[in-house]
């Protein structure tokens, strides 16, 4: 075992952790907002809007994230209109392209989780609330959303874990996250086994952190589960 090399490698790989966490965190938040909007569309009274939501989900679930990243990073630059638009300062940077791709991708899965969680709220508990005079936003805020959270939180935690690992694909468009740094070190040293093992361990520990956070959230938001 070449301990000094392993320590040095670990040290270098750890400098990629902030970027990995940034990509995960921002995409998770932006993705959630998008996901909630898409889920709302999926429940809309107007059929065309429901189809639009389904198309959106199908499109992003049905194509590889890698392809989505390439299209946004390389493909959009080919479009003259986009290059002269206000979006270009973002689309010209790999960082923002990765965040956009990751957000869009996770929002499609998130929308399905939210839709399922809302659908799982017992119909008769909603009726009980209606029978007491609740409707509209009050009904959602007091009864439906808190219940949906119970059903959706664990699934959304899983999605966060998948997203964390999906950020490693951002390395293909030059981002120096944990995986990006790992590639660079491998091309310098050709010691891929050790380097990827360590990077894998880093992702593993970050996953444990996310799992821990979700558990904490569950205990805080869902006191019922404590009993």
């Amino acid at each position: 075992m070449d301990w000094p090399f392993l320590a040095r490698t670990a040290g270098e790989l750890l400098t990629g952790v902030p970027l990995t966490l940034q990509l995960t965190g921002i995409a998770l938040c932006a993705g959630f907002v998008l996901a909630a909007s898409v889920a709302a569309l999926a429940h809309n009274r107007l059929a065309p809007l429901r189809w639009l939501a389904r198309l959106y989900v199908g499109l992003f679930q049905g194509t590889p994230l890698l392809v989505q990243i390439f299209i946004i990073y390389y493909g959009f630059g080919q479009i003259e209109y986009l290059r002269s638009s206000f979006l270009w300062p973002f689309l010209a940077q790999a960082y923002w392209c990765a965040i956009i791709a990751l957000s869009l991708n996770t929002s499609a899965y998130g929308a399905e989780i939210i839709r399922g969680a809302i659908a799982a709220v017992p119909r008769n508990e909603i009726e009980a609330a209606q029978a007491m005079g609740m409707s509209g936003f009050l009904l959602r805020r007091r009864i439906i959303w808190p219940q949906a959270l119970r059903y959706g939180l664990a699934n959304y935690g899983n999605e966060a874990i998948l997203l964390l690992k999906a950020t490693s694909l951002a390395s293909v468009i030059t981002l120096m996250d944990v995986t990006g740094i790992a590639y660079r070190l491998v091309s310098k040293t050709y010691r891929s086994e050790e380097i990827f093992t360590i990077s894998g361990m880093i992702y593993l520990s970050l996953t444990f952190v996310i799992v821990g956070c979700v558990h904490m959230l569950e205990r805080w938001l869902l006191p019922r589960n404590r009993v």
Binding site: N124, A128, A129, R224
Partner: peptide, 8 residues
């Protein structure tokens, strides 16, 4: 019939 208390 089914009480329909809010379980949360």
């Amino acid at each position: 019939q089914n009480f329909c208390l809010w379980s949360h």
